[in-house]
Write a protein that binds this DNA or RNA. Sequence first.
DNA 1: AGCAACCGTTCCGGCTTCCGGAACGGTTGG
DNA 2: CCAACCGTTCCGGAAGCCGGAACGGTTGCT
Lengths: 268, 268
Amino acid sequence: MTVLPFSPVLADDAEDSPLRSVSTAVAVLDCFAAEPELGATKVAARLGIAKSTACRMLAALAAGGLLERSGSGRYRLGLRLFEYGQLAVDRLLLREVAMPVLGELRETVRETVQLGVAVGTDVLYLERLETAGAGLRFRTDYHRNPAHSSSIGRVLAASDRELTLAILERGLERRTPFTVVDPQRWRRTLVQTREQGYATCRDEYDLGWSSIAAPILSGNERSGRRAVAAVSVVGSTSRMLGPRKPAVVQGVRRAAERITSALGRAGA
Amino acid sequence: MTVLPFSPVLADDAEDSPLRSVSTAVAVLDCFAAEPELGATKVAARLGIAKSTACRMLAALAAGGLLERSGSGRYRLGLRLFEYGQLAVDRLLLREVAMPVLGELRETVRETVQLGVAVGTDVLYLERLETAGAGLRFRTDYHRNPAHSSSIGRVLAASDRELTLAILERGLERRTPFTVVDPQRWRRTLVQTREQGYATCRDEYDLGWSSIAAPILSGNERSGRRAVAAVSVVGSTSRMLGPRKPAVVQGVRRAAERITSALGRAGA
DNA sequence: AGCAACCGTTCCGGCTTCCGGAACGGTTGG
DNA sequence: CCAACCGTTCCGGAAGCCGGAACGGTTGCT
């Protein structure tokens, strides 16, 4: 059981590691992140390998269950990956201690609550608890957001200089008219986040939807406490940033603090 | 977007396919299904390969993000698998059309609702919606059950002769004093399931917990309609099989029928 | 404290096994 | 009916992998 996920390098093109065929196989898997179904020809073209090689790779991955054959001879991600993925996230101490707190937070605020970590310059959502009353948008798609236009991403960047620089280097992509794309303004939001202990995100990703996030800290006092994850509440902008805002802010901060201390007790 | 997952062969030891190193890499991943953290030595021993080979495999998989390094030099499943897994399940048409129905079912019965498919002789849960009031057991662990002691498994086996035989061949393992382990009796539960159109499971997996499931059908009339998945409601035995049982049964059956017809409309 | 056992990693030679081009059968569409 | 396309198979050459042994670091027992 581990406290926290190691932040992996993103899709490294410089495949200098040995086990060339395994690296290729991983690259083949990566092709399916962008497109749901692919055939041998397209995979070969995308990776610059021979068609026969791609075909063998696909067959081998399908034999292992990581890919599955789609009716028309094409392939798609296999359910075994779903199993592995569930196992991976279940074994995170962070998620384990966070779950009950997230459940209570959802009851308190009656909105969708999320738990996210940074992966590269994105936010990866480890958990999302929906609330039936609150618009009921079963958005199971999107497990990842660009960090700059997310309250969780803002909280994480506020305590991680490297992440801040990486996000700025990648560029602040505009999603809505309200997305903060000016580097100076964006840095000021980080300052504000540090000062007030939480971050907000108003209509910056989806129009009409806003979120409030607070950091989960880890690490002992000597090595410096760092935000390793964050809790957020997301809902319609009027509910999030209207009169109920103080209550939501308090709920999110309390939840994050409780997870932080639970993590400290359990995880060394 | 696919209607249904292809039922994959389980951890095949007869790795006669080409791409030996890729097959080995998949086998390495499989090692982590049983144990959360493994080192090169243990992986090598478990697979009967050289330690150096195991080490290279682990390094290559970690370079691709499928594994991550745990502090003490050991490895564990990586978060990239979580991402892939989420993508895999999101792209299932089945899950997409089922989600809103499951949400409404949860509201109606106020219990935990599940969506499951057969993988080998197990039931794999694609979705599980918890209800706050109902005991609030955030059981995120267990994505798989033996099919014989699950109401979903019973529903699926009832319409799939091959699955029935596979389950019997594997053996009916006892989990509780109430688990049906006698093959004759178990087959009778299948007959009953077929007759009444739903399956029940009373204290057979966890004492005090029971479930009711109904089948989701697919395939046109000519090729024969087959149960490709099932919906279930799980809760304390008194709530499931007491006075509220008729209401739960009706809710589950209605939900399964709605998903079946939605699947028919959307998925050819 | 010192030693030993263990683990993850690296190095290197021999050879297994993989890569790529071309050909094959099936399907689609003009 | 033919042509274009796709997934798959075959084959030779050679590239990359496997396994044994040695290396540095840590752990744990004496």
